[in-house]
């Protein structure tokens, strides 16, 4: 590891741990008002959707929005959504989504 790498990994580690630990450290001194508690319920759905949507609809950031039949990320994602909505099983969603994704890649490449 060179100096740049050591500084980068140390910095990233400290920042990430600081974010994860700040509220846990404060513990009893932190109380949330009802609005915050209500808002926190929506955090996982909002954050994960915000990660997934660009990955499906614009897999190449430079290309912009890519709504086309040969976009395997879009087709695989849609397949995963259908499986998850119908069966609510995580493993089936991952397996089905990935099979569809790779099939599509193979068909259109």
């Amino acid at each position: 590891m060179n100096t740049f790498e050591i500084t980068m990994v140390t910095g990233m580690a400290l920042i990430t741990f600081g974010i994860r630990y700040a509220l846990f450290a404060a513990g009893n001194r932190v109380r949330f008002n009802p609005l915050v508690t209500q808002a926190l319920n929506y955090v996982p759905v909002a954050v994960l959707t915000a990660i997934v949507a660009p990955a499906m609809f614009m897999p190449n950031a430079e290309k912009g929005l890519d709504i086309a039949l040969d976009n395997a990320y879009l087709i695989g994602g849609l397949a995963a959504i259908v499986i998850a909505a119908r069966w609510r099983k995580l493993l089936a969603t991952i397996a089905g989504g990935m099979s569809c994704f790779f099939l599509w890649r193979w068909l259109f490449n």
Partner: peptide
Amino acid sequence: GLDFAMVATFIGIVVPLLRTRPMLAA
């Protein structure tokens, strides 16, 4: 394209949570 695994995992976490209209709106 193995990075698609993350997309599929997150979809598998999120979609079953979308049982109410406010969740869908979010």
